[in-house]
């Protein structure tokens, strides 16, 4: 079974990424992995999609980044941490998403009824 439509994912990326960073200070690669693992591999985020979202959030003051350089050999990582502005943003995005899901569900259910009514008329 495949993942959700790309456009649908694109519209919710900010909410998804912000939620992960809110749970735990994260770096780019770990965010991609978290999304993959938590969705059992059904959502695979590409780097070209993730980093613009991180930049947007950082530019908006929702998150901040700090480079961490290991003392010995290792990979330098840029950790992202949520800021108070980001928490507010996350709250707003969550509410918008829940409202949207509720409304779409209403529409889908209404649509199903409409179709069955239309079907019975034709029949």
């Amino acid at each position: 079974m495949g993942g959700p439509d790309k456009e649908l994912l694109r519209g919710t990326l900010e909410l998804v990424v912000l939620s992960i960073i809110a749970r735990q200070t994260s770096y780019g690669y770990s965010i991609i992995n978290a999304i993959k693992q938590e969705t059992e591999g059904r959502i695979e985020l590409k780097e070209g999609s993730l980093y613009p979202v991180l930049y947007r959030l950082e530019d908006a003051g929702a998150i901040e980044s700090v480079w961490h350089y290991p003392e010995e050999r290792g990979v330098p990582r840029k950790y992202y941490r949520i800021l108070p502005e980001g928490k507010k943003r996350l709250g707003r995005l969550r509410k918008e998403w829940c409202d949207y899901v509720r409304l779409v569900t209403l529409l889908i259910e209404g649509g199903s009824e409409g179709r069955s009514e239309g079907g019975s008329e034709d029949g």
Binding site: G28, Y29, K46, G48, Y51, V75, P76, K78
Partner: peptide, 28 residues
């Protein structure tokens, strides 16, 4: 960010594969 990301990812698999998965640079 890309440099760090590629270094991180290539600890798990060969760098050629990492770059292939990332897709064409133009697309990024």
């Amino acid at each position: 960010d890309l440099r760090s990301h590629i270094a991180e990812a290539s600890q798990k698999k060969p760098v050629d594969e990492v770059l292939k998965d990332m897709g064409h640079p133009r697309k990024i």
